[in-house]
Structure formats: C-alpha cells, structure tokens
Simulated scan of single mutants.
Amino acid sequence: MSQKIAPGTMAMLTLAPLLWAGNAVTGKLVHDLIPPATLNFVRWTLAFLILLPFAWKAVSPSSPMWQHWKRYCLLGLLGVGCYNALQYLALGTSTPLNVTLVGASTPVFMLFIGAMFFGVAARREQIIGAVLSIVGVVLVLCRGSLEQLFALRLVVGDLYMVLAVISWSLYSWLLVRTKEPAEIRNDWAMFLIAQMLFGLGWSGAFAGIEWSVGHHEILWSWKLAAAMAFIVVGPAIMAYRCWGLGVQRAGPVVAGFFINLTPLFAAVLSLALLGEAPHLYHAAAFVLIVAGIVISSRR
C-alpha cells in the first residue's frame, strides 16, 4: 500500500529544492565576488541574527539544548558548516551541470547510509524509485542528448559535491534518529538556531582557513548584497525549516527523493534566465522524477 504524504508535507519538501536550486544559481553568479567558505559563514551569521529575537531562549544559559550539545554540534557541522560550504566550493571548479548531477545521487546515499548505520534496509520500491528519479535528472542535465552526457568530465569540484551529498544524507538521518527536548523540537526557530550556533563555529573555522591561505578578497556590490539577502532568507531559513519538518513527517528516505527536484528547478531557472523555451525532455524528466517519488513511498 502507499504511505500517505500530506499535501502540506509535499509542499514543504518541494519548496526546499526550489529554493536550493536558486541557491546553486546564485552561488555561481557571485563566486567571483566572495570566497565560498566566507559566503557560507556570512550567510549563516545573518540568518542567526534574524532568528535570534524569536528563538533566543534556545541559546540562553538555562536552555535544555546545552544538555544535548554534542548532537547540535554534529548537526551544525553537517548541515550548516559542511554542506553549503562544499557546494559553493564545488561551483568554483565544476559546472552547475556536474554539481547537480552529483547531487542527484542523494537518494542513493540516503538508502546506503540508512542501511549501513541506522539498520534500515532499502526496499525494492525505493531502489526502483531511486533509479527512475535519477534517470529523470540525467535526462534534464544532458538535455536529451547522449553526446552531452558522455562529454561530462569529473573534476575536483565534483568530489567536493560528493562529500556535500554524504554530509547532507547523514544530517537528514540524524534529524529523525536522535531525540532532543520537546521545547526545542516543537519550535522550528529554536531547533534551527541551536544548529546555527554550533554551525557558525564550524563555518567560521572553515572561513578562517580560507583566509589564512590567501582567499579573502570580497568585492562588495549591490549584486552581492541582493544575492546575500536571497540566500539568507530563502535557502537558509525557509528551506531548512521546510526540509526539517518535511523529513520529520515523511522520513529521510522518502524526503531524499524530493532532492532530485533541485536540478530540474535549476534547469528551469537557467532556461528562464537565458530566455530559452522548455523542451519535451523536461516534461519526460518531470514524469520520471515524480514517478520515483511515488514508487519510493509505496510499501
């Protein structure tokens, strides 16, 4: 039978990839204006300051969060410190095509990590769903041409993205596999800011390493300011809120298949910016990706 996914949960798990697609496009646009680790650190610093007036109790000395600081330290490392920094770093040497193609492997890593570390065996339907969904993503990324697919070449940026996908898969499993105080769990702002507190430490350390090796030039402009405003409010706060709640409701494996919507949205955004018309393979890819989501949620 099918596992019911509420429309609200589907909407949240769809909005997060849409915002993250915008994040990838924006990260590529401002790559020459600010170093990647520094961009990640500034992004989360601003997001932390925005949420602080609404969730300051989570980081106060009397907060129950401190009793579980190791959990939040790990979540902050994987979700805030590593994932986006690695993605921004990957965009420096790789193409958006390759980065999103590597990112499409998220459902596979979700299944593998769940089986290896959390004792959750992959079901046949989930494996079939993963294959269909990834085929749909590849169809978009190669624009329906096998020649373009065969022309892909892996570079160091692609390896950074593999590490980012592994980090995100672990982060998503830990969202539902460990417990925390209900006071924080039931308040999304407090839950997110608790991760940010430790994530800022990790991302700040990575930015410090980046500056120590000479990558510290920031070219401030209205373009960079507008990009920063978007990635702080959209991909950082709104997307993490939607993803966290969606994973809690649908589970990390089912949610992982929605990640494959990210490159589809990225392709649409790129087409919109370039003024190109959609093609038939976009519709075919959408059907395959949605089919993968539906099949993976059956049991």
Rank of each mutant, 00 (worst) to 15 (best):
257 F>L: 11
57 K>G: 08
41 F>S: 01
118 F>H: 12
75 L>A: 10
290 V>N: 05
6 A>W: 09
138 V>T: 12
154 L>A: 15
286 F>V: 09
32 D>T: 10
71 R>M: 11
12 M>P: 02
82 C>A: 15
49 L>E: 01
37 A>L: 12
145 S>C: 05
204 G>T: 01
112 F>D: 01
55 A>Q: 06
125 E>P: 02
288 L>D: 01
40 N>W: 06
263 P>M: 09
102 V>E: 06
139 L>K: 04
273 L>R: 10
105 S>P: 00
236 A>F: 01
181 P>A: 13
151 A>L: 10
179 K>M: 13
94 S>C: 05
299 R>S: 12
153 R>N: 14
289 I>F: 13
230 F>P: 01
291 A>E: 03
60 S>N: 08
195 Q>I: 04
66 W>K: 08
181 P>E: 13
160 Y>D: 06
108 V>D: 00
21 A>C: 09
22 G>H: 08
214 G>A: 02
135 V>I: 14
278 P>Y: 07
69 W>L: 04
74 L>G: 06
239 A>W: 02
5 I>L: 14
88 Y>F: 15
54 F>Y: 10
139 L>V: 09
175 L>R: 11
12 M>H: 04
26 T>C: 11
184 I>C: 09
147 E>Q: 14
272 A>N: 03
173 W>T: 03
40 N>I: 06
172 S>C: 14
190 M>R: 14
61 P>V: 10
63 S>Q: 09
233 V>S: 08
191 F>Q: 14
274 L>D: 14
132 L>F: 15
105 S>I: 02
83 Y>W: 13
278 P>A: 09
285 A>V: 07
199 G>D: 03
158 D>L: 12
231 I>W: 01
75 L>F: 13
190 M>V: 00
146 L>G: 11
2 S>D: 03
19 L>G: 01
283 A>M: 07
186 N>W: 05
244 G>P: 00
197 L>F: 14
114 G>N: 06
268 V>W: 11
14 T>N: 08
219 L>I: 04
157 G>D: 12
272 A>V: 05
28 K>D: 04
267 A>F: 11
217 E>C: 04
19 L>Q: 01
190 M>H: 11
118 F>D: 09
280 L>G: 02
5 I>M: 10
244 G>I: 00
226 A>V: 05
25 V>F: 12
295 I>Y: 10
93 T>Q: 12
27 G>Q: 10
169 S>Y: 02
103 G>M: 06
162 V>S: 05
175 L>W: 07
134 I>F: 14
104 A>Q: 06
257 F>W: 03
224 L>E: 06
260 N>A: 07
223 K>Q: 14
157 G>Y: 12
296 S>W: 08
117 F>I: 02
13 L>I: 11
271 L>K: 08
277 A>F: 12
257 F>D: 00
98 N>I: 04
142 C>I: 00
25 V>A: 15
108 V>K: 00
273 L>S: 09
162 V>Q: 03
145 S>I: 04
126 Q>L: 03
114 G>V: 03
247 V>N: 00
96 P>T: 07
100 T>R: 04
31 H>V: 10
289 I>S: 06
71 R>F: 13
297 S>V: 02
183 E>I: 13
